[in-house]
Amino acid sequence: MSDAPDQPPLVPASTSGSDPWIGLRRFTSARIALGRTGGSQRMETVLDFRLSHARARDAVMAPFDLDGVAYRLCAAGLSTHRLATGVTDKKTYLLRPDLGRRLAPASASDFRARAESWGPRDLAIIVSDGLAAQAAERHAVETVTHLAAHLGAAGWSLYPIFLVPCGRVKLQDEIGELLGARFTLMLLGERPGLGMPDSLGAYFTAGPAASRTDADRNCVSNIRAEGLPPAAAATKLAWLLLESARTGRAGVALKDEQPAASALFDSPGTLDSGSV
């Protein structure tokens, strides 16, 4: 085949599909070797992209099936308690991260009254839809039940699982401070990527307090079937929590040296303000 511009092949390679170096796709999930029509993307790749974006948008805007999550946690033998932030709709959630970081005043006063009855415990687990309800719906129950089993075996005491729609990562500081909890762990849907609309993030804090910042936290991200599966994530989180309790370290000072899972991904992850 000649590649001179004035002798185009009968059916130009540029309009017949992907580029000839499509074999390079075995090295990356990036959208390479897409082919072209003229210099532009082909119909097929344009529509494929649009579908991915549509699914990510739907994931951001989808309602949170709180009842379903509560029911399945109950079925697994874990009690739940519901809380609320000042956010009541998705648009406000996106525009006002400050509201998602605090309990609604009514919810907070209710909660203060209940906190007394639970007494101080080791860990408060909080589940929220965050930026992808389906992440919480699909992976939170499995992650929590595995984690509760690991920590129960290590003698840790847990609060009921707190379910809070429209929460942000920092919400755990207020909840933990009101409870007097030793640790808090927040599970919430991450900002959906194009190919992954159901990725769950987990962020924990030792000694939760209003003064805590992202640098004090540890993060395990990309919890989903094709990423870090929930059971493996629970193992990792349990290891990190126990290690933090043992060494007194947290945040950037707590290094993930767990042998088996450490190669799977990086921890602590970066806490992008846009995603949490």
Partner: peptide, 14 residues
């Protein structure tokens, strides 16, 4: 590639 940054999780220009 394809305007889809698979590391940073956002869409840029292709």
């Amino acid at each position: 590639p394809g305007a889809d940054d698979i590391m940073l999780g956002y869409q840029s220009t292709s």
